[in-house]
Each structure stands twice: as C-alpha cells, then as structure tokens.
Design a protein around this nucleic acid. Structure first.
Lengths: 304, 304
DNA sequence: CGTAGCCATTCGAAAATCTTATCGGAAGCA
DNA sequence: TGCTTCCGATAAGATTTTCGAATGGCTACG
C-alpha cells in the first residue's frame, strides 16, 4: 500500500511543478520528496513524472493518481478532524438506550437542547421496558449511554442522574385525598393498578411491597408505565409509580410517601465514558427529571 | 497527519472487534496494531476504542473516524490502481496536440480505435495550424503527444509516423492532367493557390519553391490546408499540398512529383514517452496516413 | 564557456515501526 | 475461590524506513 506521505509528495509536486519547490512546501528536503516519488513509481510500476529541464510535469499515470491522492489526503485529514470534533461534541453520533418510561420526561428535553446546541451530533435512541431489552441484543450497534433506573451491573460506569420520587396515585375523591403524606402500611388491602410482567416495574413493585409486608390486590396490569396512574385515576384503584409517570394535568390524586420513597435514575456507560457521552450525561444530570408543575403542586413544596 | 497504516488498523479493528484479530487480519502483531491505534488516539486527542473484557468497541469518535478512514484507504489504493491502469492503457487521460490538417486523416482513425479498445482512456486534442500554436501556451495543461510534420526541436523525442507524399492538384482539364508525374520546374509561372501566413505550410512552400528556383503566382491564400486543393480544382490554379489534404472524391487532378516529394510526419513527446503515449504512437505508426482510395488511383500504384 | 537551476544518487544519522517477551485485568469454569 | 484463558498495554531491542547533507549529471541561459 502506498504511503500517505508519498501521496502528499505527489500532490505537492503537482501543485508546484517542481520537486525542489514541493520539498520547500512540505518543509522537507529535495531528496526526501524525490525518494517518495520514486517509491510511488516503483509501486505503480509507471513513471508518474516527466523529468524536464525546468522542473517536472505529470505523465498521464501521474494525473490519474493525483486526483485519488488528493481524495486520500482529504479523507485522512477529515478522519482525525471528525474524530477530534466528536470529542468536542461538534460532530459524530451518539447512541442511547433508554428505559421507555424515561424517554419523555428525562431524555427528551436534553435531546432537544442538543439538537440546538450541538446540531452536528446525530443522536439515536433505542427504547425498552426492561434492562434485558436494553442490554440485550445489540443489533451489531454498540450503545454509548444507557439511561435507566439504577443500580446496574458493576461493569458499567454509572452516574446518578436524579433521585426520582415514588408516589401513589388514586382517583379523585379517594380516601387518600385527605391525607398529607401516605405510609405504605395504610395502603394494605387496596386495589392496585399493577404492571405487566414485561415491565420491570412489576418485579420491583412486588419486591418492595413484600419487603414492607404490605399486600395489595392487583386488579389490572399494564405494560405502559404512564398508563398506571391514568387507570388509577379512572377509578380502578391506586397506582404506585415513579412521579415521572404522572403526566401534566393528571386527573387524579397524587401523594408522596412517608417516609419519602425514591428510586435512583442513572446513566451507565461501558467503561469510562468518552467525552461525547460524558457531556451528554452531564447535561442529563443538571436537567434532572422534570416533574410537571400541577403535579408538583399536589406533592408539596419539597418535590423534585 | 495520520498515517494510512494507522487508519488501516482502525478499520481492521472495527471490522474484527478485537485488536488481536485485527493484527491477524493485517498479518502483523498485536502490539503493532495497539501502538498504531494509540498513535491515532494521540493525534485525535480522543479515545477511539472502548477497551472491554471481550475485545473492543468503537467510541463515537472512533465511529466518526472510521468512515473517513475507509475512504482514505480506498482512495489511496485507487490512486496506485489507476496509475497502474493508465500505464497499461486501461484508464487515465491522454492529451494530444495535433497539426490541424492531420487530425482527420491521421489521428481520427486511431482515436476511433482507441475509443473501442481502450474505452477508459480519455483522449483530448488541441489543434493548431502552426508549431507555435502547438507548443505555445500550454493553458496549464501539459501535452503528452504532439503530432505534426517533422522535424521538431531536439529536446523532444520523436517518432516518424509516416512519409507523406506532396502532390500537386489542379482543375480537371488542366494541362497537368496529361502528364504522369510532374517536375517542379514545369510548374514555373503557374497560378498558385497558396496558404495564409498563419498556416505553417505557407513558409514551408515558399522555402521549397525558392530553393528549387521556381516561381509561382499566388492568386489566393487559405488558412485551411484542405481548402487549397479544393480551390485549385475550382479553377483558381494549382495547389501544392500534402496528399492528406486531398479528400476522397476530389473533383480535380492529382499528380505526384518527379522525383517523389515527401514530408515526414512525426509524433513528439517531451522526454521519453510514457507507456500510454508510447502505445498511442505505436498505433499511429502502424496505421499511418490514410490516403483516400480514389486519390490513390490518380497517383499510381506506388502511392502510400 | 561558465553559471545556475533541478533532479538522482549515495551514505550516514535519525526516527518510526515491528517483534518478542511480559504484565495486568477480566471472564469463565471448576 | 482459585485456576485458566483471553485480551490489551507496556517495555525493550532489532529492523526497516525515512530523512538530510553532500555530490554528480544534465540542461538552459547568459
């Protein structure tokens, strides 16, 4: 394979019409350029230059090589340039994998900001409702940043993005509407809008309740996290979910737990995050989880 | 500037997902590839690979560099390939400069053949009516092969393409029609269709006639070589021109000189001809000058 | 006829690259 | 847990490549 250096020399010679001048242009010596050209001619088995009294001119073979040589040099320069640009969030692509329920409240605002401030960075998202779906088959596409409820496997580097409050939701007029904050115990025996098994909140909720010794009666199960509070508000029972699943204008009752119950949202990267991912994660962290205003009103002043 | 070698390593690593496998693919050792990648990362000031337990994956910066790296490698390979192809008349471009009068009878058939047999070679022609016009301002475009009446400047390498006969043409019924071959002397005093000063045949004819001590009366001058015989046939007088200027179906009398009078047609290249030019010149030589059939009939059996 | 400009070649020095050997970490397995 | 295996990084020495200074040949020019 020809050396980039040799191609550079060819281009310089073509541009200056002289090996000596090309050497000056390249901050090199005349023999160095001469030898690079000679090497190239050895490789192509053809004369690339016509040696004349006053400098050199290109042979047809030299002309043919010249165009491609320029392309090669440009591409090589562009390779390091775009890599460097990516390191500075001025280009490249970022591949995210996100727990489905977090896409809208957590990712969306940051992605929107990036489209404005880093328009040359192409962001792609893969969504899933369970860690298996996130970490699972990579489709040959490696993921740069995972966004999900923590904790996660130790081989990932994790950054805590937010402590998200767990709340209970109920229909308007439900007895909980009177209380300020709710204890888990007082929910015992209530009808529960549960999650479907493919939603990882299902297992999580079961474990949490049995750990607290509380029993609830599942009356319906849904895969879509944000559907649970809606179904609860529709009168099916109560729902226990992250506050981010409660949409703005929620038509029911929202109550915090006492003591406060939260879950951790983290960003995970395989190994040390590269600069682009690190930047994105930093933005995720400073923005945190957006809790809709009217839901905050129902929760009290110290809501996240 | 990054090395092509380093970019090759990056591509190989991306393709295999492992430095060790990439080294195998490149018939190199694992540390060699590792160092090349390290050098590239030093140059881009960014991590290009994520080192994981089982091989490596590309970071966003690595992905960004990868695409350009492939382009660079392809272009470099393509540069030597197309240079080599040009050496074998399988590509490239050939720039010709040709005395205007020779384009049709000499160049055209060979170019037609090349368009068929070497379709990937792009041929361009510059025409002129005098050597000055041929060798003159290069327009920044160097010429590979000059085709013109010889002899030419000694700094060119010349190849004799053909000995072209000089003939005299006259209107039908002219007294020359009776003769077999004509001597220059017997033309003395005749009306001559001459060439315009910008046509180099003008000087050439004047020198030739005065050297022979023959005087003719110029009655008209033309720049276009092939127009002279036509004007002669139209009754203006006689014309003296290369036989290639006499078209097929010429409506007049064509006579050889006695002794036979010829001029040399040569191909000239600056310095040693490159393979492509050499090939083209060889074809020019074997094809020679085509003299139209019915003109040959008027000249006799030994016409070229 | 001497001078100047340009390229090729030679040769020793400098630099880059490769290879061998070795280390450390992580994953898989018993 | 402890052992083995796999993979990448590092160190050091050897090899190859590249470079630079000096030189020679050639041509154009005055």
């Amino acid at each position: 394979m020809a050396t980039l250096r040799a191609l550079e020399c060819l281009v310089a010679v073509a541009d200056t019409g002289s090996i000596t001048d090309a050497a000056r242009l390249l901050h090199s010596s005349q023999p160095a350029v001469s030898q690079q050209i000679a090497a190239l001619e050895r490789e192509t088995r053809t004369a690339l230059l016509r040696r004349e009294a006053r400098g050199v001119t290109l042979t047809p073979a030299g002309r043919a090589a010249l165009a491609e040589a320029r392309r090669a040099i440009d591409a090589a320069a562009s390779a390091v340039r775009s890599a460097r640009a990516t390191g500075e969030a001025e280009g490249g692509s970022l591949r995210l994998a996100c727990a489905q329920s977090l896409t809208v409240p957590l990712l969306a605002p940051v992605i929107r900001a990036w489209h404005r401030h880093h328009p040359r960075v192409a962001i792609s998202i893969r969504e899933a409702v369970s860690p298996d779906g996130l970490f699972g088959p990579a489709d040959g596409e490696a993921i740069d940043v995972f966004v999900l409820p923590g904790p996660v496997d130790g081989r990932f580097t994790t950054t805590v993005l937010a402590e998200e409050e767990i709340v209970v939701t109920a229909p308007r007029g439900h007895r909980l509407a009177a209380a300020g904050a709710v204890t888990l115990a007082e929910l015992d025996g209530a009808d529960l809008v549960h999650f479907a098994p493919d939603n990882s909140l299902s297992d999580w909720l079961d474990r949490s309740l049995s750990a607290a010794g509380v029993r609830l009666r599942p009356v319906v199960r849904t895969s879509v996290t944000s559907a649970a509070p809606q179904l609860a508000a529709a009168g099916l029972g109560i729902a226990i979910s992250p506050v981010s699943a409660v949409s703005a204008g929620f038509p029911g009752v929202v109550r915090s737990f006492s003591p406060r119950w939260t879950r951790r949202l983290v960003a995970a990267t395989p190994g040390e995050p590269d600069p682009l991912a690190a930047r994105f994660i930093a933005d995720l962290r400073t923005r945190g989880v957006r809790v809709p205003r009217d839901v905050r009103a129902q929760l009290g002043d110290d809501a996240p």
